[in-house]
């Protein structure tokens, strides 16, 4: 008997799986696209670009996508660089003992709890503010810096970094050991490389090369995050998920098509990014 991937149960599994993974999304996408141009929905009255134009004209489209991208890029960049720094300082020895346990801890925190915690910690009446009041740094909550529901998304970034920094630290520490970076660094030293050169020419390229696929997936994950910006964000600008779900659920019926339009654009962009990246690399 020859083990083969081309038997009918395997074909069934494959096709069945692809159907589950893609069909609901594609069907929803087509429906949303029709809805966004007035061809579906209870209040639809024929084909129109009105809703797309409304998104475009008010600048909401770019503000929403731009803000989401800003949060994703900044939180991932800070987490990755922070992780790099920690791994460099500790020479990749981070996973052992109690300290190792602590690093793993945030991986078991759900986004909604992380957001709630950041609110209760960094908010103007949060724990830090209470401590600041206690030692006389501030007189009233209004004096505390604006870190939650703030214009720069500091609260949102903090929550994402709380979850991503330990993750990337563990990831980079793993790669550090797997790639025997310490040996390479010693080699670099014997060849007379300065600390800066070691980091610049050996550590960063190798860690970046190996961690890039994960960085992309995590970036897309943050881009679509919902709970964290829902609790810690401002009324405007919003991140994509918050915008879409608010439009679909919480507002005037006339603007549901705008939510659909934004959802279509988001899904198409994300799948495109995935496709381009996937095609270029052997391993994701």
């Amino acid at each position: 008997m020859k083990i083969s991937g081309r038997t009918w149960p395997n074909s069934l599994l494959r096709w069945g799986f692809v159907a589950i993974a893609t069909f609901p999304l594609l069907a929803g996408l087509v429906y949303a696209a029709l809805y966004s141009v007035g061809l579906a929905g209870a209040l639809s009255d024929g084909f129109t670009w009105r809703h797309w134009q409304a998104l475009w004209a008010e600048g909401v489209l770019w503000q929403t996508l731009g803000f989401s991208l800003y949060i994703a890029v900044v939180s991932i960049a800070l987490s990755w660089l922070g992780a790099l720094w920690l791994v460099w300082l500790s020479r990749g020895r981070l996973q052992k003992g109690v300290l190792g346990y602590l690093l793993f801890l945030p991986l078991g925190i759900p986004a909604i709890a992380a957001a709630f915690f950041i609110f209760q910690w960094l908010g103007s009446t949060g724990w830090l503010s209470r401590l600041a009041d206690q030692i006389g740094l501030i007189q009233q909550p209004q004096d505390f810096p604006n870190w939650v529901n703030d214009p720069f998304g500091i609260g949102i970034l903090a929550a994402h970094i709380l979850l991503a920094l330990p993750f990337f630290t563990l990831l980079l520490a793993n790669i550090y050991r797997q790639e025997r970076l310490s040996a390479l660094i010693v080699l670099g030293q014997t060849l007379g490389a300065s600390t800066y050169q070691q980091v610049r020419r050996i550590v960063i390229p190798l860690l970046w090369q190996r961690s890039r696929p994960v960085v992309l997936v995590y970036l897309l994950f943050v881009l679509g995050s919902y709970e964290i910006p829902l609790l810690l964000g401002r009324s405007h600008p919003e991140m994509v998920s918050v915008f879409v779900i608010r439009k679909l659920q919480r507002f005037s019926l006339d603007t549901i098509p705008q939510g659909m339009a934004m959802a279509v654009l988001y899904v198409v962009l994300v799948l495109l990014a995935l496709f381009l990246f996937y095609r270029k690399r052997r391993v994701i």
């Binding site: 799986f17 692809v18 993974a21 893609t22 609901p24 999304l25 069907a27 929803g28 996408l29 429906y31 949303a32 997936v217 897309l220 994950f221 881009l223 679509g224 995050s225 919902y226 994509v240 998920s241 879409v244 779900i245 679909l248 939510g259 959802a263 988001y266 899904v267 994300v270 799948l271 995935l274 496709f275 996937y278 994701i284």
Partner: peptide, 22 residues
Amino acid sequence: LFFAYWPCVIAPGILAGLVYIF
């Protein structure tokens, strides 16, 4: 395997919004 990544990279909330009608 490419198709397996689809649901993983799309925000679950938006995915839900898209399939809600069905």
